[in-house]
Computed example of a mutant assay.
Amino acid sequence: MAADSPSLSGPLPEAHLHGPLAAAQPPLGLRERKKLKTRIAIRRATYRLIGEQGYEATTVEQIAEAAEVSPSTVFRYFPTKEDIVLTDEYDPFMETALRARPAGEEPLESLRLVMKQAVAALLEHEPEEMRQRARLMAEVPAVRARMSETMAETSQLLSRVLADRTGRAVDDLEVRVFTAAVMGALREVTIHWAERDRQDDLVALVDRAIDTLKGGPSL
C-alpha cells in the first residue's frame, strides 16, 4: 500500500456502505468500534508491508509492530496471515442486504445485486487493498487455498438467508449447491481479474459470471 502508516482516519465499513448494504445495520458500540479499528489497522499494516517486501518476507511480528499491537493481538483477530489478507467487514452487510431483497425476486438476481454492491463498495473505498488481495489470491497458493475456505463460510451465511427466503431447511442440498456455485463464480472472477492485471471492470465481470450461471457460455 502507498500509505506511510496504518491510519485509522479512513472511512469504516458502517460509514461508507450505501443502499442495501447499509440497510438496517445498527450503529456499533464503542467496544465494537475499537475492535473494528484494530482489525483495520492490522490489515492496513499487512498490506503496506507486503507491498514493500513481499508476502513471504512479511512476518506476524513485523505486522504487529507496524500496527502498534502485540503479536498475540494479531493472532486473536486473525488466526493466520492468510486471514489478514482475506478478511473484510462485508459479510454482515451482505446478509442484511440479501434479506432486504423483494420476496418474489429470483435468488440468482438477489445475489447478483448484493455481490455487485459489495464489490463496488470495496473498489470505491478500499481500491488498493482490493487489488493487492486479488493479486495475492492469484499468486500465493496458501492465500488461494484459504480463500476457498473463507468463501465457503460466506456461502454458508448466505445459504441460511436463502433458506429462510425460500422456506427450505438450512441444510437443503439445492440451496447449498446454488449458493456455493455463485460464490465459486465470484472466486473465479476475482482470479481472472487479477490474472489480467486488474484492468477489467470487476463489477461487469460479476455480471458476466452470473449471466453464465443463468444460461451457460454463449455458443
Rank of each mutant, 00 (worst) to 15 (best):
M1S: 10
A2R: 12
S5N: 12
S5L: 10
S7G: 14
G10M: 11
G10S: 15
G10T: 15
G10V: 07
P11L: 15
L12Y: 10
L12E: 07
L12T: 03
L17M: 13
H18W: 08
G19C: 11
L21Y: 07
A22M: 03
A22N: 09
A24V: 04
P26D: 05
P27C: 08
R31W: 05
E32I: 11
R43W: 06
A45F: 08
A45W: 06
Y47K: 00
Y47D: 01
R48P: 06
G51N: 03
E52R: 09
E56C: 04
E56F: 12
Q62K: 08
I63K: 02
E65I: 11
E65Q: 15
A67T: 03
V69F: 04
S70H: 08
S70Y: 07
S70E: 09
P71F: 14
S72E: 14
F75E: 02
P79H: 05
P79D: 09
L86P: 08
T87G: 01
Y90L: 10
F93A: 14
T96P: 05
R99T: 10
A100V: 06
R101I: 07
R101S: 12
R101L: 13
A103T: 08
A103Y: 07
E105G: 09
E106L: 15
E109C: 08
S110C: 11
S110Y: 05
S110W: 06
S110K: 15
L113Q: 13
L113S: 03
V114Y: 08
Q117I: 04
V119N: 01
V119A: 01
L123Q: 07
E126W: 00
E126R: 03
R131S: 08
R133V: 00
A134S: 09
A138P: 06
V140K: 02
P141G: 00
A142F: 03
V143N: 01
R144Y: 02
R144M: 09
R144F: 00
M147A: 13
S148K: 14
E149N: 07
M151V: 08
A152I: 01
T154D: 07
T154Y: 04
V161T: 03
V161P: 04
G167H: 13
G167C: 08
R168M: 10
A169H: 12
V170L: 11
V170Q: 05
D171V: 07
D172C: 06
V175G: 01
R176F: 02
A181S: 12
V182I: 13
M183G: 02
G184L: 07
R187P: 06
E188G: 12
T190V: 09
W193T: 00
W193R: 05
D197V: 03
D197M: 00
R198G: 15
Q199M: 06
Q199T: 15
D200P: 00
D201E: 08
A204V: 01
V206E: 06
V206C: 09
D207L: 07
D211E: 14
K214T: 04
G215H: 13
G216P: 04
S218T: 14
L219R: 15
L219T: 13
